[in-house]
Amino acid sequence: MNKHEINTNETKQRYIYTYACHETERELCLLELKCLFGQPPEHDSILLSERRLEPGTSPFIHLRLDIAVDAGTLEELCEAASTLQLEDGKTFKVLCFKEGDNDADYDERRGIERRIGARIQGQAQMKEPDITLGVIRAGERWLLGQCMHSDRSWLERRQKPQNYSTGLPVLVARALVNLAVCHAVVHEAHADGLKLLDPCCGMGNVMIEALSMGKQIHGYDINPLAVRGARVNLRHFGYEEDLVKLGDMNMVKGTYDAAILDMPYNLCSVLPADEQKQMLRSLRRLAARAVIVSTEPLEALLSESGWTLKEQCRIRKTGLSREIWVCE
């Protein structure tokens, strides 16, 4: 067997994803990656998978490396790099990443880039190359492939015309949508065709992220001010404001594939247990799967409302801790 392998049509394509998160969102990050890829990451900064996702799917993923060369040593990687065929006229550059198991310092990584770049047949271009090739060490293997960087345009949506100080951050909202639909992604279903519901939508943070990801979603809120604010935000980002309606979720009709429920009432006052249970029962009637967010423990009420807990994690934000439950 050769000591290095170059991907061909006969070999299974593999991918490396680099990811990062703040410690307050680490549980959510790991849970989202587990749901999206069907496996938890085995490393603090990279995830190896045969599943191909756009790197912008998760707000925690920074890039995807489409592995072309898998070698046992750096010398073998350099040798294999000389056999890579770039498209005619395409310029390139090589980046050696500190993520993974590469303990090289900055100067050593630049040296690795020069060594590999010198072996590749093509024109190097450091400022604006047509192709960026990445080098990562994973365990005892050296991996080389084309880099596909994440679309980070969601960062622009952190600023909205209307917002709550306790509203879900954009990053969290985006991850919650993935938790709601990732079962369809993992099982090769058409996740974009799912009908989603945000029954307590507030200012529409979750809705806007779902819409930006190409998902179908409808929102309701019992508070007229929230509905008005959500419509302003939707219109600001180019979405139909009629997707949000004034209404009590206990009175909403219809069926949805999944729902994201951020129980907002208990942020300002204590919501009685019987009212919480009614909301959860209504949600059970409306959706087959739910991602539920609360500042209070809900395990007992979830069970009493007919939900089966699948996953759970916690996020923290400046003295405010939220529990997240994924239920079916």
Rank of each mutant, 00 (worst) to 15 (best):
F37N: 04
A273V: 10
L77E: 02
K93G: 05
E241C: 09
V181K: 00
L95R: 03
V135Y: 07
C313W: 07
Q216L: 05
L298R: 01
H218S: 09
S321N: 10
C21V: 08
G139S: 05
D257N: 14
E299S: 12
C327H: 06
L155P: 00
D107Y: 14
L168F: 04
W325Y: 15
S269M: 07
R322Q: 05
D262H: 11
M279C: 11
S212V: 01
V69L: 00
T318N: 00
S269D: 14
D192A: 14
K90N: 06
M203A: 09
E50C: 08
A287L: 04
R115N: 10
M251A: 15
G319D: 10
D70S: 11
V227F: 06
N178R: 01
C21H: 12
G72Y: 09
E188V: 10
A300Y: 14
K245M: 09
P264N: 11
Y164F: 15
A173N: 08
C96E: 00
W142L: 04
R137G: 04
K90I: 12
A138K: 01
A71S: 11
E209H: 10
E32W: 03
G306H: 10
L267K: 00
I120S: 01
N163Y: 13
Q125R: 13
P40V: 12
K215H: 15
G204Y: 05
